[in-house]
Write a protein that binds this DNA or RNA. Structure first.
Lengths: 326, 326
DNA sequence: CGCCGACCACAACGATCGGTTGTGCGTCTC
DNA sequence: GAGACGCACAACCGATCGTTGTGGTCGGCG
């Protein structure tokens, strides 16, 4: 199906004449006639009744019209998502099931009609995201540059939310029945975190976490995907993994897996957003505010020793109240 | 833009290989390559990065993908709206701004995702709608056959709602400042109701109404469309018209028009729905229940002398309580 | 009543497009 | 280094889409 034919159909239905529609489109009346005929042939249905003074929609044509309008606007939106000057807010997330993407999706559902495209740069190094933002390929990225000196001057990194960690364990694991766990209880248990890029902020986060609480966090293993990880966890009695409380797990229940919150202290991943310091996308500020308005993890919370700008908007006086146990 | 190319793009993005997508679509790999190349040329953007083991979405491709999915599903829905065997519930209304259509639209918004197509048969005679239902062109029609003997055996006509009438007057009309009006107050005022087909149920309705309350209802005049009517009303000091309380008027305020409810008694148009007695569309019952669940006009109400089956579902014991002043 | 004007359909023709087969190139694997 | 795999390019052919020219039908008008 040619979308130009669909657009022609909509126009012809609106003006009620092939001739007029042809003038509007800058083609001959015969071309419009052939486009409609082709559409009718493809749909195996008559869309217009031809009269001496123009055309009129048939019943099938009336039923088709709103869907045709939807196709036309869908095509326009699709093109606008690509064109550099008109494109919608484009945000890089670590993965489509990550807590970042889940909260973004919540925001999008709460604000229907907003132009938002979620992409993943699929890079281990956060500096790839930095380069993509500077190049204008994306408008913002949920990555973290742990060394403040490494962040270019023209970019800003803002802390937007803390994602508390949970332990994901199979039913045979000794910690499976716990309602909550403290970091001390995790000591000597194998915690497997595959798929973490070597020099990424997440590797640094887990490094600091392991040394802070003397944990056995193994991030080296090969990553065969989420499904393989879940299957391994489901059958293992001695291996667990960390997930963010907002991360989406597709079939956690079918594997019999349990998510156990870690408390006293909460282990919080300080989520930052990187975006251009000047001329950020107009819709970005609302998203930052939305993230910052979400509930903070329960105190006390452990965070890594990055100099992340603490949330200055909603909790201005509590910058020092987030206790670090280091 | 060719929707086949869009569908190919979605498939290729999902499987990650042109070759695989080509097998799936039953074409050669080269055809897929050309389709994608054409799409990229049209969008002036690279959608895939070609690798030795397949293809991977670029950032632009990732942004395009959800919109492309929307286009594909939109095309599917459009086709399903046409195909006789799979098509969505198709209901005939008198006009897209009529109260019937407005309430239908409310229902559709309350039940997103429901397959519903609203059409107008544009026929004066309700028997055209009857024929269309019997032919399977539409699934139901908000028309009324006033003579029960004229309704074919294989069709059912159910009363679904009462639409109370309001007087629409311009600012210079003597009744413009009234908050409510009784039918007796309308006597000797000119009421203009253009566009009523001669032998339709609406003509009968207004005939009965005029004789019941001794009103001057003029339905003969030429119909130049809603806009012309509104303009005439806005400037006239002695002509008014009737509208249903649920009818949508596009720019009533810009013309300075006022809608005045008629009470003591309310004048109710008993809205019926005609549909096949056997094998009605599965979604139809829910719509009938929705209409019947809406608020009834205030009592007492005048209704024409048609033998409309009164609402038996929600007000089973009140069949006789609807007072007719005839 | 017959002409004219408006509008759509059909025919013919050239350019373009979308499909095919055949081939070449780069990369990954053994 | 040979083979497998996957995508791109070239050549070819039929279908399609645009054009111009023409015919048919309906409504309005003198």
């Amino acid at each position: 199906m040619d979308t130009e034919a669909v657009r022609t159909f909509v126009l012809a239905a609106e003006v009620g004449q092939f001739q007029h529609a042809a003038d509007e489109l800058g083609v001959t009346q015969q071309a419009v006639s052939k486009r409609i005929a082709a559409l009718e042939r493809e749909l195996e249905a008559r869309l217009f009744t031809r009269t001496a003074r123009g055309v009129e929609l048939t019943i099938d044509g009336q039923a088709f019209l709103p869907h045709a309008r939807g196709i036309v606007t869908g095509v326009e939106r699709a093109i606008n998502a690509i064109r550099p000057d008109t494109r919608a807010l484009r945000i890089d997330v670590l993965g489509f099931r990550s807590g970042q993407a889940v909260v973004l999706h919540d925001y999008w559902r709460a604000h229907p009609g907003i132009g938002l495209d979620v992409v993943t740069l699929k890079a281990g190094d956060p500096h790839v995201a930095v380069a993509a933002i500077r190049a204008g390929d994306v408008d913002a990225s949920f990555r973290t540059v742990t060394d403040p000196a490494a962040l270019p001057r023209d970019l800003e990194m803002a802390h937007v939310i803390d994602f508390p960690l949970e332990l994901l364990v199979g039913p045979r694991h000794p910690l499976a029945s716990a309602r909550t766990l403290t970091p001390a209880q995790l000591r000597r248990h194998r915690i497997w975190v595959p798929g973490i890029a070597p020099r990424s902020e997440w590797a640094d986060f887990y490094d600091q976490l392991a040394t802070a609480f003397d944990l056995r966090i193994d991030g080296a293993g090969p990553n065969f995907g989420v499904e393989a990880l879940l299957e391994t966890l489901a059958e293992s009695a001695d291996v667990a993994t960390f997930v963010g409380s907002r991360d989406r797990l597709v079939w956690p229940t079918t594997y019999g897996l349990r998510r156990v919150p870690v408390v006293n202290p909460t282990i919080a991943y300080p989520q930052s957003l990187i975006f251009p310091r000047t001329n950020p996308h107009p819709g970005l500020r609302a998203i930052i505010d939305y993230f910052r308005g979400l509930a903070a993890p329960p105190e006390p919370a452990w965070v890594p020793s990055w100099p992340t700008p603490r949330r200055a908007v909603h909790r201005p006086a509590q910058a020092g109240s987030v206790s670090s146990l280091e």
